[in-house]
Write a protein that binds this DNA or RNA. Structure first.
Lengths: 179, 179
DNA sequence: CCACCCATGTAACTAGTTACATGATTTC
DNA sequence: GAAATCATGTAACTAGTTACATGGGTGG
């Protein structure tokens, strides 16, 4: 299970309230690990109980708002987890299933769906490119920044590959309509 | 939810027992949609209740073995599902999380893990290439075969991209050790 | 003062995993 | 006749989703 470790990393990067974490998740870690705010609050409560993080009330903020920070226990847990071998992530690609169904029972009119996904991935790619331009255009990067850039480049390559493949698939299906 | 639709497709391709489905899943659909045998049996029972599939006892086989086939209801359900827009698949990439943790709290010794994954993906790629050679080297392909090839090519491109990226990442981390 | 966003949650559900059970058939 | 594999399941659990609740703060 990786969500708590994703949260640990995120809190290490910047101590935060649950709400902030949920929002920050959406804009960075969610690119490769999605979680809803309910899941995040629940997980934070568990992690606090386990002694991995602690919360402090924020002075001057509304009651109930608590900022989390990582304890030594949490750091060593993160190290332990990073050293353990994770099993191959199980792929889940619904589009592939649909194409296979299409192959099995004739044309199902997937063009629209493919087009939609093409747009989605194009947007995501544009998004990544903006981030790269904005945050990583310095000539020399720190170790941390170099790694983050490498992660981002992975996302960019993935989106580019997907877009190329979707375009190919679309033209294959259109060719099909013509005949 | 897509597992029942994956099963419908698989049964359409070839009427099967639950056991056969579980095994066939492992060798084809599992490449992009994993399921355990428990999940498959449970889902088959539900689908039979819903009237999407029916089971017939196999004459001459051991008691309890039942072969499933897809009913008209099942086919139209599959069509309905294919026409519905599926939401973007939530990515789950543990390695990216680990790299991010590494960026946050210094070298965590991920080289071994990267090497392991490199090998895994290389094997998967080799696997795909064998299948392509074996099943899709004919000059002209039927519509169904062309689509299946396109799906396979998607898998191949994905593995190749991943391998290239992993090699880059490894050299980045090694460079790091040197300094 | 009303609507909207901030911020934290609870409850109920669905999907997926892990561990175990059971009996039948094939293989050494 | 013992061990392995075939074949179908049950039970208990963990993870993730969806819908809703609650109360405070802010802008018009």
């Amino acid at each position: 299970m990786s969500l708590p470790h994703a949260l640990l990393t995120s809190i290490l990067e910047k101590p935060s309230t649950g709400y902030e974490l949920a929002r920050r998740f959406d804009k960075s870690i969610a690119y490769f690990w999605h979680a809803t705010h309910q899941q995040i609050y629940r997980e934070l409560a568990k992690m606090e109980l386990a002694g991995w993080i602690s919360a402090t009330d924020i002075a001057g903020a509304r009651a109930g708002m608590r900022q989390y920070q990582v304890l030594a226990e949490g750091v060593s847990e993160l190290q332990r987890w990073a050293a353990s071998t994770s099993k191959a992530m199980p792929l889940r690609d619904e589009l592939m299933l649909k194409l296979r169904a299409d192959a099995a029972i004739g044309p199902l009119g997937l063009n629209g769906e493919l087009q939609r996904l093409l747009e989605l991935h194009s947007q995501q790619l544009a998004n990544y490119l903006v981030i790269r331009e904005r945050d990583f255009s310095a000539k020399t990067l720190s170790r941390a920044a170099a790694l983050q850039l490498q992660i981002l480049n992975g996302g960019i390559a993935f989106e580019q590959g997907r877009i190329a493949w979707l375009e190919q698939t679309l033209s294959l299906l259109e060719q099909d309509l013509a005949s």
